[in-house]
Design a protein around this nucleic acid. Structure first.
Lengths: 112, 112
DNA sequence: GTTTTATATAAGCAAATTATTATATAAGTG
DNA sequence: CACTTATATAATAATTTGCTTATATAAAAC
């Protein structure tokens, strides 16, 4: 079991202690996503989504890669926090239905 | 693996996303404690400690039992959140040294 | 090169969180 | 019963967080 300082762990837990960010990370655990997909999934503005992603990126939980005009976010498996994040995500129900809903609205394809 | 709604999980993660509360819960995982012991352990006022404990109690993560003039807090193993809390705590270093320090100051005995 | 699409960032503000100070309650002690 | 000890609660102040609005950047399309 990889161990983390309490201080660092509490930072990660606070980050994941937000419904939107926690759902984002759960989704990223099975599928990479771009910002516009998250904007479609959550009833939140684009800047709000960008700001959540930035927080996750700042601590290294997620990474970004540009692909054309899209920026694709993915879980950073090299992060020292990855083991903790993984065990937390295992307690959460699959969120694939959210991506399904997106596809039904024709919003998923746009970023592929 | 017991599953939790995202909404509920995020509430727990936010609660544990505080250094003081996270350390409290880690300590309670191996030893019951009273409020005055936590006041000794953390550089925080008694009301601040009480308020942290209240938040943990309100969601059912901890329980309290009065023993004379002391109120002893313990982890609530019946909580639906207990499995999630356990897996998180496994990633954290043991905090027994904090209780040791208390004993050396003669502050532990007072609550026994 | 202007326009559109995707995203980021900055500033301002409202809501939520945490700590402090003061006071209340409840048990134990002399 | 007055006094002390342990704890809780209420009010308030300070800090943090998350959202909105406006603007900037960067790539793609025309």
């Amino acid at each position: 079991m990889s161990q983390l300082e309490i201080e660092k762990a509490s930072i990660i837990l606070k980050l994941l202690g937000d419904k939107t960010r926690l759902t984002m990370v759960k989704i990223l655990n099975s599928h990479d996503c771009c910002v516009c997909e998250f904007v479609g999934i959550f009833k939140a503005s684009q800047p709000a989504i960008s700001q959540h992603l930035r927080k996750l990126k700042d601590v290294g939980v997620v990474r970004e890669t540009r692909r054309g005009q899209w920026i694709i976010y993915s879980l950073n498996k090299e992060s020292e926090y990855y083991p903790l994040v993984q065990t937390i995500l295992q307690h959460l129900p699959n969120q694939d239905f959210r991506l399904k809903e997106l596809e039904e609205q024709g919003l998923r394809i746009s970023c592929e």
